[in-house]
Amino acid sequence: MSAVKKYFSDIYNSMATVLVGMATTGRTAFRKPVTLEYPDVRWELPERYRGILHNRIEDCIGCLACARACPVNCIHIDIVKRGKEEYGVTSDGTKITQWIPRFDIDMSLCMVCGLCTEPCPTECLTMTKEYELAVHDKHDMYLEFALDRDKVMAEKAEAEKKAAKEKAAREKAEKEAAAKKAAAEAEAAGKEGAEPEKPAADAEADGKPGSEEKKPDAS
């Protein structure tokens, strides 16, 4: 008898539980989809999201703190100490005292831990929210932040040459104007005209390796 009872209760239970299951899935069918249509819509990333690294090289003072902090040694920096020479100031006012010919980050090695950004004194090395790290060529993973030194130096030399030329022209005009007045004043103007040549010569010397102290990165 109990077998017969079980037979029919099994049938009843199977039908009833199918209906319960269908009610459940029926309810979920009208829930808001959780799918994010990714390339069109993106997640709102958290404030401290650690994405790809970025360095604002204008603010970088070449202190090597980041390269020392990196656990996988993926930051390669070359610096050139220039002694008293100043290369400008960062946006927070720190003086930049050395030239940085190389500031490379190998993102294929980077483990995106964020330890390099913490010791940065000028806050120039930051982790962006950029998380699409895939590239077509693996060399694109190798990020180079250093400014093109030759180009910058050439521009600088050009600017200085131009400034010198303008100054010379101005001086010349002044000299011509002054020559009409007095010969003693003209002698002093000739001494000043030689001065602008000097920084350009220094820049030439910078380019030769070994001519100045060159420090490799912390690795």
Binding site: T25, T28, A29, F30, R31, K32, P33, V34, T35, E37
Partner: peptide, 8 residues
């Protein structure tokens, strides 16, 4: 199937 699994 997508709707039942809260997909699109």
């Amino acid at each position: 199937s997508a709707r039942i699994q809260s997909r699109l």
